[in-house]
């Protein structure tokens, strides 16, 4: 068989349960209302960098094309500025849909092509849930080393300035009593849109 120029999408590529799970996530209940007007794509300050515009992500998400939306870079480039969400004429929580898709991508163990944002979120989450507070110095250094090692040295001057101005330190910030937060997190049922939850 000759190489296909364009892949056909079959109904078996769709996962209706996936779409339903997204709709059950907080803020995502209006997903189906979308009329594909593309206000979101037009207003998004980052849509020009995205492999799929937010509009297309919404279309594919509501149709349940799980693999497509979980592998796009759009969800990781979303900077959570909520501009799309407040301008959406159908009041769809587009930023919330992006959050939901990020969670689902992590749930599915997907490592995005543009890995840095996910790495940062993970580092942040781990630090924040472990210590209860974020040590910005540690977070920045870890993220930069893991995702942009080349930039590390170019940031040297900035780092020095931040150290000098007292805005950056090596101290690890912690809650006085971390155990209570850990207990609370452990006792929290997941919010993942699955019907049992």
């Amino acid at each position: 068989m000759a190489t296909l120029e364009r892949e056909i999408r079959f109904e078996s590529d769709r996962d209706p349960e996936f779409a339903a799970q997204i709709r059950r996530m907080p803020g995502c209940e209006n997903l189906n209302r979308c009329i594909q007007c593309a206000t979101c794509s037009g207003i998004c300050p980052l849509s020009t960098y995205m492999d799929m515009t937010p509009r297309r992500v919404i279309q594919l998400a509501r149709d349940g094309f799980k693999a497509d939306v979980l592998n796009c870079n759009t969800i990781w480039l979303c900077a959570s500025c909520y501009q799309c969400q407040v301008e959406c004429p159908k009041e769809i929580g587009i930023t919330d849909v992006m959050y939901a898709l990020k969670c689902k991508a992590i749930e599915a163990g997907i490592k995005p092509k543009q890995a840095a944002p996910q790495t940062l979120y993970r580092e942040f989450y781990n630090l924040g849930t472990k210590n209860g507070r974020i040590s910005e110095g540690a977070l920045m250094v870890n993220t930069v080393i893991k995702t942009q090692p080349a930039r590390f040295w170019s940031l040297k001057m900035l780092g020095l300035r931040l150290l000098r101005t007292g805005r950056f330190g090596w101290k690890i910030e912690r809650m006085p009593q971390q155990s209570v937060l850990k207990a609370a997190i452990q006792a929290t049922p997941p919010i993942n849109g699955k019907e049992s939850s």
Partner: peptide, 26 residues
């Protein structure tokens, strides 16, 4: 039918211009 799940169905072929895919819907 191009796929087993399409057997015994009528298949509608269309380009979904919004997702950018050619789709087959049985």
């Amino acid at each position: 039918a191009m796929r087993p799940e399409e057997e015994n169905h009528l298949i509608i072929q269309v380009e979904d211009t919004l997702s950018g895919y050619v789709r087959r819907v049985p």
